[in-house]
Amino acid sequence: MTALVIAEPHGDTLADATLSAVTAATKLDDEVHIFVAGSQGAADAAARIAGVSKVLHADGDAYAHMLAENVAPLIVSLMDGYDAVLAPATTTGKNVLPRVAAKLDVMQVSDIISVEGPKTFTRPIYAGNAIATVESSDPKLVITVRTTAFDKAEAEGGSASIEAVSGEGAAGISEFVKLDAVESERPELTSASVVVSGGRALKDAETFEQYITPLADKLGAAIGASRAAVDAGYVPNDYQVGQTGKIVAPEVYIAVGISGAIQHLAGMKDSKVIIAINKDPDAPIFQVADLGLVADLYNAVPELTEKL
């Protein structure tokens, strides 16, 4: 049988999250096809992914921004040939795929972290405080994939054919207006090997920048934050790590002035090594940290940055 993966286009290429969804798909089906709404470059990138045998490419303005109202009906129309459709659990995947599931009258399995059988998966619930094993009884599977739980498929080495697909185009009920993106030279938060995150203790945007950025620069790290830091406007929303923000699992996660609320831990506790700097020895973050330093960050962080 064949699985269809919904790619996450990123300009003329694909977001890495796509590669993890491909790996999850190969655990389900022998053959993997991939749907790309967007540029030719993104479709070409999809064709080069190892293990993908066909690319379905939807071109045109209506599909350019992955508007769920336009893309979901097209994906639904393609599903006759597939027994499963998977998307990375990014904001794009989470937006589009339940719309596909409902049209297929299928109960989606969200955010899987393992494939246990042909229709059996595990997924975190309650902010990752419990892991549920669920079995689907639906004729088709609709799945979003927690990208940190699956290795990335090889981005090169494949030579899939590219087939153009088209549907009704614009549904006429929604319109893309703009994307305010925060451009950055840094590694992307969800795929970086080192992440430095700051919390409420950083006081304001300038202080956050002054203390966290040099440390991150030194380590070639991505920058993350707690909800409290985002709410207070120290950093943009897409820095939030946690149950309801981004899920990260880098080699090294450094939490600076973050208490370690369960909602924050949900987004980073699968990191390989966790380092915490906090002046409160009882902060819950120390219960999950491999290395803890009880110190005032305003002294410790500059010193650390200098000595690294």
Binding site: G128, I131, T133, Q287, A289, L291, G292
Partner: peptide, 16 residues
């Protein structure tokens, strides 16, 4: 449509 066959604790991280 989904049957939950098991709910378990996630692996616990040891404090370092």
């Amino acid at each position: 449509r989904l049957t939950t066959t098991n709910v378990s604790e996630p692996p616990v991280r040891q404090a370092g």
